[in-house]
Each structure stands twice: as structure tokens, then as C-alpha cells.
Design a protein around this nucleic acid. Structure first.
Lengths: 265, 265
DNA sequence: CGCCGGTTTGAGTCCATTCAAGAGGAGTGG
DNA sequence: CCACTCCTCTTGAATGGACTCAAACCGGCG
């Protein structure tokens, strides 16, 4: 990286560079984006479902979740976001927001006018490509979550979540894979995993009892990554992080097999 | 619509026009896309997870699903596609496919080189915008599925699925909302809804017994749309179809409320 | 006619939930 | 510095929704 002006938007630059190589002018333009920085209190909403937002929001520090609420009162957290994440592009580009975005804990965020972003994407194709890929990878993560919710039991879901968390935090430079702090309560974890907080608690305990992880409050240490990945049926391919991921576990091999309804006429 | 050359790609044009207004040159260029038409047998794979595809595939007739398989053998169908749908853009644009695409029943499809599509998007910004919004809406549907799988019981999930099916088939001009043919087996429905085929069967029967729907084989008639939407907690907003959707049910009102963890400090 | 994939039905089991209560920690105000 | 409160985590017991296993039925098709 060459020398660039100091900007609060660096975390976003860092993230987008994962998806496409950016030239110096690209990077300068990105960091030059007009923006207003705001501090958000815990649980504060960034976007409300049903509203139209004229800005787009980049997380600079802290965490936020997207979620929807069902008629029965149940809440489903769709994704968890960390520093560098562009949190509501879809909500801005579509007519109305189809889900909420809410801060978890204290959050520092930069608000950027949507037009500035679309203009940037148009003027700097490489940046546009990076943002495009960003949303595609996000879609890939949604799809894996669908598999997680639909076809894995509580233990596997929880293990899978821990693996994903570890890798994403590591990729964002916020922690190392083997040890990190969960940014969410067990209740929130339940809302992500489609479980109750009670059952999340029991499941975490069970993973601990088996010596796979170690927990002290929200500090998590992963003692046996391979076993965690295996019980979580975790194959990092869907994160599209490139080769920089650990050895494949047994589950990974299964993904490739051709034996699923193998009846091509 | 003005007169345009007859092309097998018309279903795709029809769909993309939902998302952005296209000029005559835009439309002509779209229909002029180089392509090769192929007929696929039931259950034939269009894309395999882990592979790199150099083409992108548009459905002209029939149905296809995207799915992933878990290590325990369970399969999760991520989405169901119909005529006009661009079925594997993400798979083509990312490094490797993160999920499978498979025909359901006989399918007619057009294969288009990815470069032709990206070139079209670059030369005709309106087309690019339409494709961009298409993937955003697709993301919105994924998010609603997440809510469905994570936070609704079998009965609500099934009802929700039927509502979505009805509206999407109608929007594609393939059926009317009140009566259509399910393009999938109950086993496949189970794989979409995270249920077993046995339970799907019982749930459909229960909806029938309550007089909400009427079934004869795979033919479904919806007798009481409002009640179906209510039991499915169905609010069509996430489909982003515009105003052309039916009266809101009770559930819709709940979505907007502000009572969810209403603690902004 | 007989096969085959899909649908239907029943009985028993289990995973996750619900309900309820107690313990632990962090922050606040007296 | 302690008392108080709120939130989160933890634990137990009972319930229930969806699953498993298994068999029978049905309709289309070769």
C-alpha cells in the first residue's frame, strides 16, 4: 500500500480491496467520499424496515445486525456486521428497506449519500466491481445461513457460527481465529441461529464440556479448530476469502461428492 | 411495447423490465445476446458447487432450483426459479460456484457467455441497473427465507411458501394467484422449507382441512387468500413487485411496529 | 399387468421449547 | 463503598412440534 491521506473510511477501503485490486486514484476517490460521522448508542436503529434511506452507512467501529421480525414476535437476525462493512446498500438502492439495521453495543458509523456511492462506482469501475462482488459474497453468506438454519441441528449451527465469526473477525483484522470476544449476547445468538437463548447456552456448554472451545463470559478460545469445523460442518469456501483458510475437514470432502439424487437422465 | 424481433430470450426481457425502464436499443441489444439453447432432462445439473462456469444460464421454460448439501446428507433448496430467471450470475462472477443449480422436470434454457452479459451491462447502463436490482431483490427473497426458516413453524412456513409461489408465478405470467400447479414434489418442498416430506404432507392436509386451500395432486387452489396470508405471516413487500399486490393482512401491520427492543438510549 | 416415484397414514422418539426460578456481573446512585 | 437494579447467564422439569421408521396406497407409464 502506498501512502494515502488519513481517513476514517480506511476500514471500508481495507474491506473492498479484498474483492478487487484498486489503483491509487481509486483509493483516493474512495477515501474522499463525502461523509458525516455519527456515534450510535447500543440498540439504536440505523435503518427501519419500510423506510426509504437516502444515505448509506459504513461501520467504523463496533457491530451491527440486520434483522426482520415475524408476526408471532420472533426475530431473525440475518447478518452481523463489523468495521468496514457497508451496511445498507440494498436498502438504499431498492424502493423501501425490507429489513432493519440496528447497532449492537456502541457503534461509530459514517453516513454517505447514496448518489456519491453510485457516482464513485460509475467513475471508478474497479470500485464498482469491488462493491458488486461484496454484495455477491454477502449473498453467498445468506445462502450458507439458509443451509445452516434449514438442515443442521443446534450443535452444528452453533459450531458453524463460531467458525464463521472467527474467520470473519480475523479477515477484518479484529482478532485471531483461535481467540476472540463474541460481540453478541446468547439471546442475540439465538436470534441468529433460530434457537432460544436457553438452548444456545446449553449448546455452548456442551461444546465446552467436549473440550472443543473454552469460554469465560464472552471470551471464546477455540482449542480444537478441526473438531469445531467438523461438528459445524464448516467449509469456508462460501466466504470467498481465497486460499487463506485452514485445512479442510472431513465435511468439506462431502460437499463435492456427486451422490446427491444422482439421476441425470 | 414496440415491435421487437422474435427471440427466445423474451422471458428474460420481460423480467428485467420489471426492475428498470428499458429503451428500444436496450431491448434490442438484450435480445441480441449470443446464446445457445439447450434442453435439460429432469434432475440434470446446470451448475455444480465448486466449479467455475464461463456461461450464464437463462430459463426459457420449466423450473430449476439452487441448493446446497450439508455434511449430514440434508439438502437445502435455496430458491426456485422459473422462466425468465437468470439462474447463475453469482456463480459466474465469483471465483467458484458456492451452490448447485439443478433442473426440476424438463427445462429449456439459454446459455450466454458471461462476458457478453457484462459487456451488455457496461454498454447499456439501464440493463446493468436492471440486473443489479434483480440480484438485490433476489437477496431480499433470501432474507425473507431466513426469517421463514428461523422463526416460523411448519404451518406458517408452508402457507408463506404458497403465497410467494402464487405471486411469483402470477408476476411471471405463468398462472393466476388463486390457482396454480406446484412445480415441485412434497419432498422438494420439504427441502425448501427445512422440513421432511412427511411433515409437509401433514401440513398441507391441515391447510386443506381448514378450507384455506384445495388440493388435487399438485394442483392448488387458494380459497381464502387473506387467511392463507395471515397464517403464513405473509407480507409481499419483500418481493418488491410494486403496488400490484393484494390487501395487507393483519401480519403486515405488525411489521411496522416499533416495539422490538425499543431501547435506544 | 406390474413397476416406480410420489403421497398418505400411524406409532414412537427426540430435539428444542416453554416456563420458571436463581445466580452472576456491571453500572448507578445514595 | 455499599445497596440496588437491570441484564445476562445458568439450571431444572415438563411439554410439544417435527422427525424417524415403516407400511400401504395411488396414479402414470412402459
Amino acid at each position: 500500500m502506498s501512502i494515502l491521506p488519513l481517513s476514517p473510511l480506511t476500514p471500508m477501503l481495507r474491506k473492498l480491496q479484498r474483492w478487487a485490486a484498486l489503483s491509487d486514484p481509486d483509493r483516493a476517490a474512495l477515501l474522499d467520499l463525502p461523509h458525516k460521522i455519527r456515534h450510535l448508542a447500543p440498540n439504536q436503529f440505523i435503518v427501519h424496515e419500510g423506510e426509504k434511506a437516502g444515505y448509506s452507512c459504513v461501520l467504523l467501529s463496533g457491530f451491527a445486525v440486520r434483522h426482520k421480525v415475524a408476526g408471532n414476535g420472533g426475530r431473525q437476525i440475518l447478518s452481523l456486521h463489523m468495521a468496514g462493512d457497508l451496511v445498507d446498500l440494498q436498502n438504499s438502492l431498492l424502493d423501501v428497506a425490507d429489513h432493519n439495521v440496528q447497532a449492537i453495543g456502541r457503534v461509530e458509523a459514517a453516513y454517505i449519500p447514496v448518489e456519491a456511492i453510485t457516482a464513485l462506482a460509475a467513475d471508478h469501475p474497479a470500485v464498482g466491481r469491488a462493491m458488486w462482488r461484496e454484495t455477491l459474497v454477502e449473498g453467498s453468506i445468506f445462502r450458507e445461513s439458509l443451509l445452516n438454519l434449514g438442515r443442521r441441528d443446534a450443535r452444528a449451527r452453533t459450531a458453524h457460527f463460531l467458525c464463521e465469526m472467527a474467520l470473519r473477525l480475523e479477515a477484518a483484522g479484529l482478532a485471531v481465529r483461535e481467540r476472540f470476544e463474541l460481540p453478541v449476547t446468547q439471546e442475540q445468538m439465538g436470534d441468529m441461529l433460530g434457537l432460544t437463548s436457553v438452548h444456545v447456552n446449553r449448546t455452548l456448554q456442551s461444546l465446552g464440556a467436549d473440550g472443543i472451545i473454552d469460554r469465560r463470559q464472552r471470551d471464546v478460545a477455540i482449542h480444537d479448530w478441526d473438531r469445531l469445523a467438523k461438528t459445524g460442518d464448516f467449509d469456508p469456501a462460501y466466504l470467498h476469502l481465497g486460499g487463506a483458510v485452514p485445512a479442510q475437514t472431513g465435511a468439506a470432502a462431502l460437499y463435492g461428492r456427486e451422490t446427491v439424487r444422482p439421476d441425470a437422465a
